[in-house]
């Protein structure tokens, strides 16, 4: 009876803690999927910094503030924030998360940081069975892929075909399978392969250089900037499409077109001369127009009320 009582006691005391801790970490794990686009935990830099042991480098209030709005901190002149922004050049999008949710994410990060993994808080299962499952999953697990692998291939394997496909997807000549808008609606690249595109968002010519294959792939898989996130929310890109786009952007980055892009004075001059010519032509036509009315003589004699 004593044993039963102590078990019950343990259960009553321990359970809430375990549940609480487990919940935090599980919620954090779910939320971290968003972060994983740009950040890794212990696997090196992606678009943003590696977050392993972040709690030892920054204070929690600083992190919460930064995650809420990184740019306001940069503008506010926070030394660390400015340093990070200068290093990575891409502003971290504002995250609409509660403080509690951010703490959950941080808890998850800590739990995954190398050397600090907390013991599995899940209720014990039969050890043999768990081992069996583990070993089974180990044998089934594919070879760990080298970084920069997309759709099972490294970007170095890209062929001319991938490049053309990517160009087609970028320019809208090919449709995205899930119906997402083509890149050219908002972005442009300096290349002879596609016509120049939109000026609403960043020039992507050197995006491969900045983000590398892994970063681009991660970003395209789950876009984080508000406009893109909304646009692709229900129209995610497929792995193959991402591979093609990355191949295209790599090619564009490696061999940007020398011509085009900046028309400057020629465009202005051409437009001006064209306008003068056109207006001159219109004026020439206009001068052949009947002037006034056949009644003019009568009208000019008439009295006006004002």
């Amino acid at each position: 009876m004593k044993t039963l009582g102590s078990i019950l006691f343990l259960f009553l005391i321990g359970m809430p803690t375990a549940i609480l801790l487990g919940q935090d970490v599980r919620e954090g794990e779910a939320l971290f999927k968003t972060c994983a686009t740009c950040h890794s935990i212990g696997a090196g830099k992606l678009i943003g910094p590696d977050l392993a042991n972040i709690d030892q480098r920054r204070t929690e209030p600083w992190l919460i503030k930064f995650i809420h709005s990184s740019q306001s901190m940069v503008k506010g002149g926070d030394k660390d924030a400015v340093a990070i922004f200068n290093e990575y050049k891409i502003p971290m999008p504002d995250q609409n998360l509660s403080d509690q949710q951010i703490r959950s994410i941080l808890a998850y990060i800590v739990s995954k940081s190398p050397g600090r993994e907390v013991p599995n808080s899940e209720p014990e299962v039969v050890a043999d069975k768990k081992d069996a499952v583990d070993s089974l999953s180990d044998t089934l697990k594919p070879e760990p892929l080298p970084p920069g692998t997309i759709a099972g291939r490294t970007i170095e394997d890209a062929t001319k075909f991938d490049f053309i496909t990517g160009g087609g997807l970028f320019s809208g000549r090919l449709r995205f399978d899930n119906g997402g808008p083509s890149c050219i609606s908002c972005h442009t690249v300096r290349t002879d392969e596609v016509i120049s595109g939109g000026a609403l968002a960043k020039d992507l010519t050197d995006s491969y250089g900045r983000l590398s294959a892994a970063g681009l792939a991660a970003f395209l898989g789950s876009p984080q900037f508000p406009a893109m996130a909304t646009a692709y929310q229900d129209h995610p890109l497929t792995e193959e499409e991402i591979y093609g786009l990355v191949a295209f952007l790599k090619e564009v980055n490696d061999n940007p077109s020398q011509s085009g892009g900046n028309y400057g004075v020629e465009l202005l001059l051409g437009g001006g001369i064209g306008a003068v010519l056109l207006l001159g032509m219109y004026a020439g036509l206009w001068f052949r127009r009947r002037k006034g009315t056949v009644h003019q003589e009568i009208f000019s004699r008439q009295m006006k009320s004002e």
């Binding site: 219109y282 036509l285 206009w286 052949r288 127009r289 009947r290 006034g292 009315t293 056949v294 009644h295 009208f299």
Partner: peptide, 13 residues
Amino acid sequence: NIFHNPHLPVIDD
């Protein structure tokens, strides 16, 4: 003259 018909009567005609 297709975009600009020069002999049209005007409303005052």
